[in-house]
Design a protein around this nucleic acid. Structure first.
Length: 599
RNA sequence: GGAGCUGUGGUGUAGUUGGUUAACAUAUCGGCCUGUCAAGCCGAAGACCGCGGGUUCGAGUCCCGUCAGCUCCGCCA
């Protein structure tokens, strides 16, 4: 069977928005949805909308009563097919704000293909309605041009990615969606097995293990645009299912990987925004990012760097500063330019915020011509005040904020305040950076054991290998994150490719030999069959697209997203299932499920 | 698990220190209207204020609980 070309299709010869003055005097067939209707009595204008744009239809009573009566019955979102003559509008009737504003179609035939209930919200851009409604009627929301354009842009970006990766000989390989649960990382979504009752598959948090196994298979260059699942609480930039651009390479080296990704970002920004990115991207060690920006994903679009004032704070009489330093902590400050206009309440709110973030308190001072105006000023000599003011490059009219605590807490709290107090106006151009030299491990207080910072397959830096036994927390990983404007859009690492080192790491993480063999035996075994040196990364496609579009939430660029409670308001998922389904799976509910909707 | 914000005709909002007829815009329906493009003019219908409880002579307004959405912390890379 031949597929119909558009000019042979029965209902459409053209798309509404694709018509131009070049097609004037053509007889055209269009089909789409009724947008706005302007009824002048004997003359009716209809904005006909399809995915390409709008076309004004004109119905004149003098050209036949029957057709005109049909036009009078049109309502919002009716689906119609029309035939008519494309004509140039007379000069005074041109609408310059519409791409098709110079032309219109004088309709000679029309068929109403379907009627519509009055939609619950307007099908138009710059919509301001409850997100609840948009999600419940997502199919209507997606009819809005700005939402369709997001779908289009996402399609274009994904196509660019595929073509780019293909041009470097990367192979797109699919990996299972039904796999096994592994201990590390996020909470898994589980899928019960009917064939083996009591056993469960897990949906992949990422194809991490499979892509490493593909390296052992000799694929050498793998990528995949792949759905991943994590059963953790949601955020504006986190959905329970999300899409990654997953990449893994053998014999490639991290330098090449950086260049590859930088080239990909440059391509996307060039093709989508016409912006030439400056390459290579800035690289910053984790420690430096924390020290200067209080974040492992710094937003470099504005300055406001944190300042370490340990050496000066030690000279004060302020007990809070001194005691923090005595126990090996730190004192760091944040200068808020023009913060002098803040009220006492503003500062109280900031203090509260700092406490919620884990600080014991927040010290602050107004910087004035005469010195500091602050409850803590009395603990500082005039000389010391001058020194700190100078060290922080503060000017009269600024406010200085201080946190004295453990180093990590100082960084984290002031980093959050920095983001909170970010200026309204910041750099427009995208600020990409790599954060490198992450620690390999951190100590999980709750579990009382070491835990991987990235994941347990990350290779330690070779020169830090000997520290693995003596000082594990000091070991740096061959791991890196790609950060754009304060958002982590990707992360990866060079992997461990020998069985001994992998075994050592498992042991350090508290996985006994039997346990690690049970859970990761297939990987350990694979590593013992000639695994090549390999590494890769994964990019968060949803976040990437959201940043390209300029959206705050990835929900905007996901066609059918879930709410903060991980529910789909359109389908009602998750929902109760039939008793029979549970019986087949040998699953019995405990009765603690709480009140649920009738199903 | 925790904190904050929001919840009033279909939609978006207003509703003074609690006081009786819940206002406006827009959409909807009807009428008029031949060049509009957020069409215009006239008219009509439409909400017991998310839900439950309490305080009070009286609650959209105060209190408690609960549900939903959003944002953040924990969690998650």
């Amino acid at each position: 069977m031949r597929l119909p070309r558009i000019d042979e299709a029965t209902l459409k010869t053209h798309h509404c928005g694709s018509l131009t003055t070049d097609q004037i005097n053509l007889r055209v067939k269009l089909a789409g949805w009724v947008g706005r209707r302007r009824d002048h009595g004997g003359l009716i204008f209809i904005d006909l909308r399809d995915r390409s744009g709008l076309m004004q239809l004109v119905f004149d009573q003098q050209n036949g009563e029957e057709l005109f009566a049909l036009a009078e019955s049109l309502r919002s979102e009716y689906v119609v097919a029309i035939e008519g003559d494309l004509v140039r509008r007379s000069d005074e009737n041109i609408n310059p704000s519409l791409p098709t504003g110079e032309i219109e179609v004088h309709v000679t035939k029309m068929e109403i293909l379907n009627r519509s209930k009055t939609p619950p919200f307007y099908i138009e851009d710059d919509l301001n309605v409850d997100e609840n409604l948009r999600l419940r009627y997502r199919y209507l929301d997606l009819r809005r041009p700005e939402m369709f354009n997001r779908l289009k842009l996402r399609h274009k970006a994904v196509k660019l990615v595929r073509d780019y990766m293909d041009s470097y000989d990367f192979l797109e390989v699919e990996t299972p969606m039904l796999t096994r649960s592994t201990p590390e990382g996020a909470r898994d979504f589980l899928v019960p097995s009917r064939v083996r009752p009591g056993s469960f598959y897990a949906l992949p948090q990422s194809p991490q293990l499979f892509k490493q196994l593909l390296m052992v298979s000799g694929v050498e260059r793998y990528f995949q645009i792949v759905r991943c699942f994590r059963d953790e609480d949601l955020r504006a930039d986190r959905q329970p299912e999300f899409t990654q651009i997953d990449i893994e390479t053998s014999f490639f080296g991290s330098e090449n990987l950086f260049a590859l990704i930088e080239g990909l970002m440059a391509l996307l920004w060039k093709e989508i925004h016409g912006i030439e990115l400056r390459l290579p991207f800035l690289r910053m060690p984790y420690r430096e990012a924390m020290n200067r920006f209080g974040s492992d994903k710094p937003d470099l679009r504005f300055a406001m760097e944190l300042v370490s004032i340990d050496h000066l704070a030690a000279k004060s009489d302020f007990k809070v500063f001194k005691s923090a330093l005595e126990v090996g902590g730190a004192v760091k400050g944040l200068r808020v330019p023009g913060g002098g206009s803040m009220s006492r309440k503003d500062l109280d709110d900031l203090t509260l915020l700092a406490r919620q973030l884990g600080a014991k308190g927040l010290a602050w001072t107004f910087v004035e011509d005469e010195g500091w105006r602050s409850p803590i000023a009395k603990f500082f000599s005039a000389e010391l005040i001058a020194d700190i003011t100078e060290e922080m490059e503060a000017l009269p009219g600024d406010v200085l904020l201080f946190v004295a605590d453990r180093w990590a807490t100082c960084c984290q709290v002031l980093g959050a305040l920095r983001r909170h107090l970010a200026p309204q106006e910041m750099a427009k151009e995208p600020h990409f950076m790599w954060v490198v030299d992450f620690p390999l491990l951190h100590y999980d207080e709750e579990e009382q054991r070491f835990d991987s910072d990235h994941h347990p397959f990350t290779a330690p830096r070779v020169e830090d290998l000997e520290l693995l036994e003596s000082d594990p927390l000091a070991v740096r990983a061959q791991a890196y994150d790609l950060v754009l404007d304060g958002v982590e859009i990707g992360g990866g690492s060079t992997r461990i490719h020998d069985r001994e080192t992998q075994g050592k790491i498992f042991k350090l993480l508290g996985l006994s030999t039997e346990e690690s063999f049970d859970k990761f035996g297939f990987l350990l075994e694979a590593l013992s069959y000639g695994a090549p040196p390999h590494g890769g990364l994964a990019l968060g496609l949803d976040r990437l697209i959201a940043l390209l579009v300029g959206d705050d939430s990835i929900r905007q660029v996901i066609p059918f997203p879930k709410t903060a409670a991980a529910a789909c308001l359109m389908t009602g998922a998750p929902a109760l299932v039939d008793e029979k389904q549970l019986d087949e799976l040998k699953i019995m509910l405990t009765g603690d499920e709480g009140e649920e909707d009738e199903e």
